[in-house]
Design a protein around this nucleic acid. Structure first.
Lengths: 187, 187
DNA sequence: CAGATTATCTTGCCACTGGTTAGATCACGT
DNA sequence: ACGTGATCTAACCAGTGGCAAGATAATCTG
């Protein structure tokens, strides 16, 4: 009589990370704006209120995604740091493509709480890597901003399909093709 | 007895452009994702179904905003064409800042219909200006993509508040500061 | 181990949204 | 004057985010 379904326990036990995974998955399908809190909760097999309990609201969930994104980006950049300046740019673009959902949330501050302490701190750590030092002088600041702008623009244009096809289909290769146009004075 | 209110006529008479203006205004306040069709209609003083009549749906309205945006960008770029390469970059950033609502819609293709014929055509016209010719060779293509990526990245990073304060507060000035790091072979 | 407390999750509700349909109002040509 | 088509409203639907009340389970305390 009793259907032998393994009656999912009332308490999930590991819901917060499960919701985060579900959110990244859902955002990957429909983009951050079109992703609903309820859809994320459905993917995780819980009610939408459970998600609200863990993250407060939708902005809270996306804030958590953004924090995770900055941490992943930091990892990616750290891994390329010793391979030189160009490879850090390639790593930036690779991150944007491989972790598209995270990337798209990170640079849509109206969707989350960019002033959240965890966000600020994670972003600060990333910035140190991007500028090469915690207290860059005016020159390094401008050079860093130029490099960052280039790869960031390239990544977003590629994600939106705004780059001409003649450049090829592999964003990392396009980065290697484009980046040499930037001349950063050595140190 | 009859209140002397000038009883708004049943037919607006000029609703389509009025809705477009209202949309740009609303997007300027809350961003494109958080702007509702109903809010736009309210601003124009009509029911939301009236907006749906003229634009089909929300994506249709945003498609119209995007088309208008590409036309405005084309104008801005044309105005700076004779002043040199750098000034075109400055014009691009100026457009993004002055017409923030348009810009934010244009580069969020998931919010509208990027394959709409009018969009494709308007974007193609813009691309010709950006690459300097309708059929760029491989070199020009890469150089153009580099320049475009740089100013596009700069504009989006500035709009999101992701540039360090040390660079100043005027995005056009920042452009003049940053752009020289790009070395484009003359012709 | 019993009882109380706390953490986690569900149900049910609200106002709002985008989209659709039927019908009201009006402009315009003949 | 009349009808036809264009324009707009009213009313409805399913889906959404957020909130409050309550159910369930884990954990702490004696």
């Amino acid at each position: 009589m009793m259907p032998p379904q393994p009656t999912r326990p009332y308490h999930h036990g590991d819901l917060r990370p499960a919701l985060l995974r579900a959110a990244v998955e859902a955002i990957g399908h429909a983009g951050p704006a079109a992703t609903s809190l309820r859809e994320v909760a459905r993917r995780a097999g819980v009610s939408h209120a459970a998600a609200a309990y863990h993250f407060g609201d939708k902005a809270g969930l996306l804030t958590a995604v953004a924090v995770e994104g900055y941490r992943l980006l930091t990892e990616e950049l750290r891994g390329a740091r010793d391979a030189g300046f160009l490879e850090m740019g390639v790593a930036y673009v690779r991150f944007a493509v491989r972790h598209r959902a995270h990337f798209e949330v990170m640079y849509r501050p109206e969707l989350y709480r960019p002033d959240d302490p965890q966000v600020r701190q994670a972003r600060a750590v990333t910035a140190v890597l991007l500028y090469g030092t915690a207290s860059p002088d005016a020159g390094r600041l401008a050079a860093g901003a130029a490099a960052w702008s280039l790869v960031h623009g390239l990544a977003t244009l590629w994600l939106n399909g705004n780059l001409p096809e003649g450049l090829g289909a592999d964003p990392e290769e396009i980065t290697r093709l484009i980046a040499p146009y930037l001349s950063i004075p050595e140190q």
